[in-house]
Amino acid sequence: MVRTTYSLADLPEGSTGTIRDIDALSPTARRLLDMGFVPGTPIKAIKRAPMGDPTTYEIRGYLVGLRRTESALIDVEIKPDVK
């Protein structure tokens, strides 16, 4: 079976997913919600930094870099047709 749900931290470079869930218990997640990381929003992993962390993502038309500690709070879904 093809895996469709990833942690955002594991979303491969260059692929687009849809935010499915976000860890509601984390204060960091609150800020991410305010910045538009709400369920249903498409997000694209653009690039990992040369040393493997952080990673830039494109969401709602802007670019933002997140460390693994932040991106791991978010679950994304990759639909085969989106990819």
Binding site: T28, L32, P54, L66
Partner: peptide, 8 residues
């Protein structure tokens, strides 16, 4: 505990 958010 402020999040790391690096806007580009």
């Amino acid at each position: 505990n402020s999040p790391f958010l690096l806007e580009m």
